[in-house]
Design a binder for these strands. Structure first.
Length: 570
RNA sequence: CGGGGUGUAGCUCAGCCUGGCAGAGCGCUUCGUUCGGGACGAAGAGGCCCCCAGUUCAAAUCUGGGCACCCCGACCA
């Protein structure tokens, strides 16, 4: 490809809207142009990168035994109502109407549609297991698109769905998808770690995310430096500090004027935070929920939401708190009625807690579970924080930010039951297929790839992702010798199976070198009178900056060497 | 949806406080000189100053309302 005819505009300065590195370089290198919040146009160069990523994904999915399909992006809304997700997705679901006023959704994901397809094609255990995948445009009316390609409203997702006769078989399909993901991210030059995750609105059981660690990430990840336990904060388990021991004492009411927070009580009464019981109020699908948890802990709203099987969970506002008869600052599970009470085990296991008296400026001492109050539900709703102890080995956990690149999880029979994906087993019994579901965000992968592969001068593409293998800078093209060598080199590269981007523009050498660094092809060749005088063509490794003049007949070999060194196959 | 910020040329931004010809650098076009790390000279093109309303003789500038975009939080690949 000749740059003189390539549609490309690089920018010396990044647009002010771009803050994170991948976004800045994406725009500076002219790979994409924003259209609206969460929507981008991809230029020829940017599109080539996306296609190369898709190629990697296809190859590895195919290798894992998955079969590619293509499903509509436009879905009849009835499909979403059948699984209850028209409701659950809420505003995120883009809706539109056809000319006959039938309502459709723009697919934010494809469990429903793939289940529809499976229901009509899978009949027997002989048809199983099978994994279907596609690379499809997804539409989500996100509350807040952000970070360039990190969070889009329209994006390409590789989504795969496995159908198995039973859970044991699903384990194998899940593992195959997991292994494929490891290879995909490895080839794409995106370092990821698998972490335990919540399965979110889609529902399901075991769930792991492939996280790219970066300060620009949206997710908080808890990592154990000692045993390697890694989990999304919304899912992470941790070991609570032991309760403070003692024998139950009689309940006692004390005046605590103006003391509202746990920190207040700790200072005022001189007790350990672990001796206090914290009260937090929520509205789950509109109904009030009271959560009791030990004072040194915080509530994990995702865990709570899951425990309550609620579609929406929000903090209770002041008016609602009063309406529920609660006293903020002195709220207590003791003597509470008409409100669902959820307790974290930490509030149940200890003795002699300090808790509110449901009366302003008063607290109880020596509150004990079972004697003074009971919960409707006792469940782990603790939020793991930096410094909490690893549930596996007991070492202090650390936190890092990260971006979710891919997600694999075991769905089970949720969709196969509601969408009627059933098969006849060997004994002639009709059973729902056990499903798994596996996604990768393609644009997000591109962003992470830039984030992980750049230096102060620009992008440094891994060879497998680079839009072209070689960037050829031609200087003084008006000189016949240069033009001649360029033609020869281009041909030799092509015959060797390498793609090249040739800078044949009339701009100065400085501009061309700067652009070559910015655009980040793994190898740069410079063809110029100076290089020719020195006996050949200058070959430069973009990553290391190593530069050498190589005789014409050695150029292809040298290119091959650099590409192999920089990233395996190309 | 809550909190914060920004909207002036393709990009980065000044001008706004204190109302009075719409500006700079980079980019773009043409010509010439250049040609190894964002060259130089000359001549040009390019604007709904986000939108609407108000105040005023006069609004990029002041007031009100709206919209868009970005960042932080609640959601997800």
């Amino acid at each position: 490809m000749r740059m003189s005819k390539l549609l490309l505009k690089t920018l010396r300065e990044p647009p002010a809207e771009a803050e994170i590195t991948s976004h800045r370089l994406l725009l500076r290198a002219g790979l994409a142009v924003p259209l609206a919040a969460g929507l981008y146009c991809f230029t020829p160069l940017g599109w080539r990168v996306l296609r190369r990523l898709e190629t990697i994904i296809r190859e590895e999915m195919d290798r894992s035994g998955a079969e590619e399909v293509h499903l509509p992006a436009l879905h009849p809304i009835e499909l979403w109502e059948a699984t209850g997700r028209a409701q659950a997705m809420g505003q995120t679901l883009f809706r539109l109407e056809d000319r006959r006023e039938r309502i459709f959704a723009l697919g934010p994901t494809h469990e429903e549609v793939v289940s529809f397809l499976a229901a009509r094609t899978i009949q027997s255990y002989r048809d199983l297991p099978v994994t279907l995948y596609q690379i499809q445009t997804k539409f989500r009316d996100e509350p807040r698109p952000r970070g360039g390609l990190i969070r889009l409203r329209e994006f390409a997702m590789k989504d795969a769905y496995s159908f198995d006769p039973d859970w044991e078989s699903l384990d194998a399909s899940y593992q195959a998808a997991f292994d494929a993901y490891v290879r995909i991210f490895q080839r794409a030059g995106v370092p990821v770690i698998p972490v335990h995750a919540d399965s979110g609105a889609i529902g399901g059981k075991d769930s792991q995310e492939f996280i790219f660690l970066t300060a620009a990430g949206e997710d908080e990840i808890l990592l154990c430096p000692s045993c390697g336990y890694a989990a999304n904060a919304e899912k992470a388990d941790f070991r609570r500090l032991p309760p403070i021991a003692g024998f139950p004492q009689p309940l006692e009411k004390v005046a605590t004027p103006g003391q509202k927070t746990i920190a207040d009580l700790v200072a005022f009464l001189g007790v350990d935070p672990r001796q206090t019981c914290k009260a937090v109020f929520f509205r789950a699908d509109g109904r009030p929920v009271f959560v009791a948890i030990r004072g040194d802990l915080d509530v994990n709203e995702i865990k709570l939401k899951n425990a309550l099987k609620a579609a929406a969970l929000e903090a209770m506002d002041e008016a609602a708190v009063r309406a529920a008869g609660l006293v903020a600052g002195s709220a207590s599970p003791v003597g509470l009625s008409g409100v669902q009470v959820v307790a974290d085990p930490s509030a149940v296991e200890g003795v002699n807690f300090v808790a509110g008296a449901n009366e302003a400026d008063y607290h109880y001492l020596n509150v004990n579970y079972g004697r003074d109050w009971t919960a409707d539900l006792v469940v782990d709703v603790g939020l793991a924080r930096s410094g909490d102890l690893c549930s596996v080995c007991g070492s202090p956990l650390g936190t890092r930010r990260g971006i979710e690149m891919g997600h694999v999880f075991k769905l089970g029979t949720i969709y196969s039951e509601s969408m009627d994906v059933r098969y006849l087993d060997e004994s002639g019994e009709r059973r729902p297929a056990v499903m798994g579901c596996y996604g990768i965000g393609v644009e997000r992968m591109l962003a992470a790839c830039i984030e992980a592969n750049h230096d102060e001068n620009g992008i440094v593409w891994p060879p497998e992702v680079a839009p072209y293998h070689v960037h050829v800078v031609a200087l003084n093209l008006d000189e016949e010798a240069v033009a001649e060598v360029l033609a020869g080199v281009e041909q030799a590269l092509g015959e060797a199976g390498y793609t090249s981007l040739v800078d044949d523009r009339l701009d100065s050498a400085g501009i061309k070198f700067k652009d070559a660094d910015l655009l980040g092809m793994p190898v740069r060749l410079t063809i110029s009178p100076r290089a020719l005088e020195r006996g050949g063509v200058e070959v430069r490794d973009r990553r290391t900056g190593e530069t050498e003049v190589v005789p014409l007949d050695g150029v292809v070999t040298r290119v091959r060497g650099i590409l192999a060194k920089e990233g395996g196959r190309s």
